[in-house]
Design a protein around this nucleic acid. Structure first.
Lengths: 336, 336
DNA sequence: TTGTAGGCGTTATCAG
DNA sequence: CTGATAACGCCTACAA
């Protein structure tokens, strides 16, 4: 409740002096008055008014975490358990660096622009960005933007990503090494330059390298809501031309397993299943889910470091960080 | 980028007039100038600067979603899948009402106070609040506070809760009706006046009503991380004096099931298991999980409505909303 | 080492 | 109907 003015009056100095000690501009103030002012700050309980700061400086300390709504279904940002895993990590790291996190869903480019101007937002995290006009808008922003899991590159924009191609390849190769040849690929809709597309390429190339022809009718794209994924599982149960399924998300894999089971099939005896992400769920299904592991909290932390560096104008050697993946063997895959 | 001033200059009127049409104060401005100003706003792309507004008015339109960190483990807000389910719902509803959501983790009371003053926060959502000095601080705030899942009541504070007692009772009674008498209770640490405590009371009373003596050694409290829950399952597997387990969270129930299975036990043949929450996971485990259902998105939405009413100074008939629960039968419980 | 003054974008009061 | 003007809290030249 106390303002700089209050402090100044209490101590009997000017606002400037108070401001100076608040910002640690030593040298400009005598040690004496510094302690005096600090005492007053403690006693009167001064807390900076960020709105006022944002108004006068050109930094608001607000970082936006943007979710670009395209698919109609999703209610908002935190739609899947994997996504929510690093948002906590982001808030924590941001806070440690003196920033504030605003969560915001936007539908259109102008939604985004309005939000940015509303708060003089300092920087942005975005997930689920593809090659479209929304991305174009991002590239034109004056503020640092860090994409998470994106494959649309641009000199202005940083990206924290994953070895998605390798993940797709590794998973598929693993299944092939286990003797599988008829491997389905299940995923949410494959968008060009998207994460899923990369995993899809990995899948196809692993097949090719093993001289297994790619069959388009083994690709299954659908939304990730539980009902849909289970239905897919029941449908896959009827396919005699499939021995293994690679799903690009654990929740999808788990849904498929549930569907298969509903249809009277066994995993892994009748169908081997692989997931992607290694969320907690993998240890809770039965059989437990063999999957591709990635480190979600680390992703969040690195994303923030990236943004902080950009905000501090530190030179960025490479505007992309690619986190490694590795395969985690559990019980859902069997040798043929 | 354009400010009110810019608009005013473009049209050739004063800032006041522009401000008036922005706020739809009809009657005070001629229809003519209104259209003129609106055109300029469209062309020049005016977007209000919320910092400036926050500074001069006493409303910032910022709503804080606070997570009070006590247990050291959790990294931040969105730690469990259930919790994250309604945060999306909250952001959406808030946005539709012209508010902005800031996510913030606080450790101490003064962390909270600082945050509130930093941004002139208009209102607050809190989860995981118990009877402690943090709660005391909340009751003294001048802004509306909506607690989610709290059992510490106070005239100043709203609460959106659940029939937790009924949930505990219903679950336990269901197991009893299925012929179980030796029913374990598994939960995170039971804090007084907490959600879990209510469910615990329901459990105990259901036992009492069936003349089954409560046994303290059938109560298992531990954290909800996957490893711990699975370990608990393996330990329970060795207990010959238990036929059913009621877990107060689905993730806990799922972990226990996984542990039981690891230890060579079958669910529900050897142990019946019940969960609580009805998250997606329940349909993905095998057997699928019988549980107590609650509507997380609705909870979020109602929490926002509550807050909006308080912010609009609407009379609030009752400062508590209790959402109903119902039992969802699936496969994890068997009749003895 | 310290103080003065102006302005950031907005709103509210009051006068024309 | 419209326009000055002050104020919100803070920062930053520029003076002293």
């Amino acid at each position: 409740m106390a303002t700089i003015k209050d402090i100044a009056q209490a101590v009997g100095v000017s606002c400037t002096t108070v401001s100076n000690v608040i910002h640690g501009r030593a040298g400009r103030v005598s040690t004496e008055t510094i302690t005096l002012i600090n005492e007053a700050i403690d006693q009167l309980g001064y807390v900076p008014n960020m709105s006022a700061r944002a108004l006068v400086s050109n930094s608001s300390k607000v970082i936006g975490m943007i979710s670009h709504l395209t698919s109609n279904k999703k209610e908002s940002i935190v739609e899947d358990p994997f996504h929510s895993a690093f948002i906590g990590s982001i808030e924590k790291t941001l806070r440690e660096n003196g920033y504030y996190l605003m969560l915001r869903t936007v539908e259109t480019t102008s939604d985004l622009m309005n939000f940015l101007h509303n708060w003089n937002v300092d920087g942005l995290f975005c997930t689920g960005v593809f090659q479209d006009e929304f991305f174009e808008a991002l590239t034109k922003l004056k503020i640092p933007v860090v994409l998470i899991d994106s494959y649309v590159a641009h000199p202005n924009i940083c990206n924290v990503g994953l070895q998605d191609y390798d993940g797709g390849y590794t998973a598929t190769k693993y299944l092939i090494d286990k003797g599988h040849k008829d491997i389905a690929f299940a995923s949410p809709p494959i968008k060009k330059k998207g994460v899923v597309d990369e995993r899809f390429q990995g899948y196809k190339n692993a097949l090719a390298d093993a001289s297994i022809p790619f069959r388009k009718n083994l690709v299954f794209e659908q939304e990730l809501d539980t009902a849909t994924t289970i239905t897919l599982g029941t449908q896959l149960a009827a396919r005699k031309d499939i021995t293994a399924i690679f799903a690009t998300a654990d929740i999808l894999a788990a849904g498929i397993m549930a569907g298969l089971k509903q249809a009277g099939k066994r995993v892994p005896e009748d169908f081997s299943v692989m997931g992607f992400d290694d969320i907690n769920l993998c240890q809770l299904t039965s059989p437990t889910l063999t999957t591709i592991h990635q480190d979600a909290p680390l992703k969040g932390k690195l994303a923030v470091y990236f943004l902080m560096d950009k905000l501090d104008n530190k030179p960025i050697p490479d505007n992309e960080i690619i986190l490694p993946i590795h395969l985690v063997e559990r019980e859902s895959v069997i040798s043929l």
